[in-house]
Each structure stands twice: as structure tokens, then as C-alpha cells.
Amino acid sequence: MKDTEGYVTADGRQIGGTLMEMKNITLRFGGVVAIKDISFDVHEGEIRAIIGPNGAGKSSMLNVISGFYTPSEGEVWYQGAKRPQMKPYEVARMGVARTFQNIALFEGMTVLDNVMTGRLTHMNASVLSQAIWWGRAREEEIENREKVERVIDFLEIQHIRKTPVGRLPYGLKKRVELARALAAEPSLLLLDEPMAGMNVEEKEDMSRFILDVNDEFGTTICLIEHDMGVVMDLSDRVVVMDYGKKIGDGTPDEVRNDQAVIDAYLGVAHD
């Protein structure tokens, strides 16, 4: 479905055609409707944000994209084809990498090992070859190690390469998680509240990294955030959710001036 045209952003960057399209997604847990008939698309190379107040269904939407939840209704179209029902690890192997709201790192392993796990989808040497550490497995390990070192350099975490992740402060953990996702060279990078719980300085750092990643590698990024200020500065287009429904979709400026969005965020007087 790469028939859709790209567009040019306000700051003059060329955005590609459609990478992913969510069509009429509905997600129910028993009687609770977490997502109600939502459609939106993500273009190649753009930074797409999903915002909304707490409990709006943003994380559920991200979990649908990454395969952790299966939508009750609706279709996910990815790279021009309808995606069948998939397990999370299968989605990951299609090139979708993600981070988690409550940081999900391998605490007992070093930063380097953590980031190396991000390369797993690119390593296909057989178990036997790996068991005897010979041939394909050996080459792969060296090849991938180089890529990983580049990511580590890029995110400025060289100084903690050998530190077990469990010992790192919160802000650095978030960065390591981003590094792991980035190491996969994803075609789509999902960030679940990358700035949650950070102080102003850390937020600025993280924003810079997100912009750099997009700029340097051309990575398509879909992120969730409820800090309006950050989102508006970062993203090219924004989906606004409230109570599981889509209430707005457009550029930051369009969304900012949308009455429904203002009501959802500031509350509306019922008389």
C-alpha cells in the first residue's frame, strides 16, 4: 500500500509513503473497551505521536502494534500487506522494535549484552554452529558487535558498557533501552513514554536523541507521551486519544487548536 504520497514537513523534511496503517482497531478486555474503532497511519521517516490523558488507551494501542495484544476487531497493515495475527517475537522479527513504559531491561546483564540482544533478529546462525562457536556464528557475533558499538557511541553510553544494568540510574536505563531497540535497526521504532519520570534535563537529552535517531538513521518513530509540550516540539503528526476513541489527528499546530482536544486536556464544563 505504498500508493499514498509522502509529504513535506513544516521544517522542510521529505516524508515517505505509508509504512503502517491501523484500520478500525477495536480492543476489548471482557466488557471493557480499551480502544474503540481507531484508524490512523504512520508514514515512512516521520515521528508520529499518540497522546492523550491517562487511561486513554495509548499503551494498549502500542501493544496492539507490537503484537502483545491482538485486536478484537480491525486490521493492521504493514509495509503494504495485511499483517496476520502474530506473536510479539514475530512482530519484532518484522523489524518493529519497542521500549516499555516501565523499562524492561535484562537487569542482570551488562549494558553491552543488553544492547547485543537487540541484534538477535539479525543473527541466524544455527544452534549447532553456535554451540561449537565456529563458522557463521563467529562471523555474525563480530559483525553485530561492530553495529552495536556504533549505537552505543551514538547514544553516548560508552562509559557504562560493562556495567550491569541493574546498577544504573533511571535516566540511563531509559537510554540503554532505546539503544537496545535501535540496535535492531528497526523499520518502525515504538517508544512507550520515553520521557516518563524524567527531570527537565533528562527530558531534553532524550528529545535530542530521538530527533537525532530520526535524522541520522531515518528511522520511523511512533511514540506515546502525555507531556504535551515535549510532543508538540518533537513530532510531525499527532493522534489524540481519549477514553479509547480518537478525538484528533494532524500536525501539532492543528491539534493544539482543536476544540475537542482542548476539552479533553483541560476538562469541559458540564452545565
Binding site: 507490537s66 502483545f68 506473536k87 510479539p88 517475537y89 514475530e90 519484532a92 522479527r93 522494535a97 519497542r98 516499555f100 524492561a104 531491561l105 535484562f106 537487569e107 542482570g108 546483564m109 549484552d113 547485543m116 540482544t117 537487540g118 538477535l120 533478529t121 537496545r180 531497540a181 535492531a184
Partner: peptide
């Protein structure tokens, strides 16, 4: 590495494939 990773965090392990 995948074996060790899985022991640490199931969700994260799934997310890296």
C-alpha cells in the same frame, strides 16, 4: 544471551524477537 535474557525479563525478551 537469549536464554539469559529470557530469565531476566519475559516481556523485554519477546520485544527483541
Amino acid at each position: 544471551r537469549a536464554i539469559r535474557a529470557l530469565g531476566d525479563d519475559h516481556q523485554a525478551a519477546l520485544s527483541v524477537g
